[in-house]
Design a protein around this nucleic acid. Structure first.
Lengths: 94, 94
DNA sequence: TCAGTATTTCGACAACAATAGAACAACAAA
DNA sequence: TTTGTTGTTCTATTGTTGTCGAAATACTGA
C-alpha cells in the first residue's frame, strides 16, 4: 500500500469519525461490551432510523464495525483491529 | 467538560484530519522535526496558496498546530499536547 | 400465504467544505 | 518610498454530507 493510499484510508476513517452521532454509536458499542442490534443502538440517539442506517453503513464501509445477521436483526460490534491499527488508544480515551 | 462537549471537540479534530492535504501537511511537519514556514510546507503540495492558508487555519483552529510569526514568515509546528490527548500514538503511525 | 418487525434504499433538500484567483495586509530591504 | 515576499481574506463555484419520510427488502412466525 502506497503512502497515498494509506492517507486516503486514514482520511476516510477520520471522516467517518467526524460526526457526533457516529462517535456516540461507537461509545455505546464500546461501553456495552457486547454486540447490539441496529435498533438498540439507534434507540439511544434522537435521529430517524434511516439516518441510523446511513451511519451504520458509513462505519461498516471503513471497517470500523462488523455486522452479523440473525433472524430479522443485525448485530453490530466494533472491529478492534481497525481501531488498533489506525487509532491506537482511542477507544480507551472515550 | 461534558461528554457532549468532548465529542464535539473530538469530531472537530477528526474532521480536520479527514482531508488528505491536511494529513500530508502534518506528516511533513512531523518528519521534518522542526518548524517550517507556511510556504515551505505549501510548496510540497500541489494546491494554491489560498487553499494552503485555508488548511492552516483549520489546523490551528483545533489546536493541532502552533504558529509563530517572524518577519514576513510564519513558522508552523505541531501541537504535541493535542495529539497526545486525542490521538495517542497517531503521529508514530504516520 | 399473510401480517409483523428490522433494516436498507431512494429522492429530495439544506448546510457545509475544498478549491482557485484576485485583492489585501504585514513586513523587509533596496 | 517603492518593490518584493509571505501569508490572509473575499467571492464564487462545485461537490459532498446529514437528514427525513416513504417505499422497498429481508426475514419470522402464525
Amino acid at each position: 500500500m502506497t503512502i497515498e493510499q494509506e492517507d486516503q484510508k486514514r482520511a476516510e476513517i477520520f471522516k467517518t469519525l467526524s460526526d457526533e452521532n457516529r462517535l456516540k454509536m461507537i461509545r455505546i458499542l464500546y461501553k456495552s461490551q457486547r454486540e447490539m442490534t441496529c435498533g438498540e443502538v439507534g434507540n439511544e440517539l434522537s435521529i430517524s432510523k434511516s439516518t441510523v442506517s446511513y451511519h451504520f453503513k458509513a462505519l461498516r464501509s471503513v471497517q470500523l464495525t462488523n455486522t452479523r445477521r440473525e433472524a430479522q436483526s443485525k448485530f453490530l460490534s466494533l472491529n478492534l483491529e481497525t481501531f488498533a491499527k489506525y487509532l491506537p488508544g482511542f477507544l480507551d480515551s472515550l
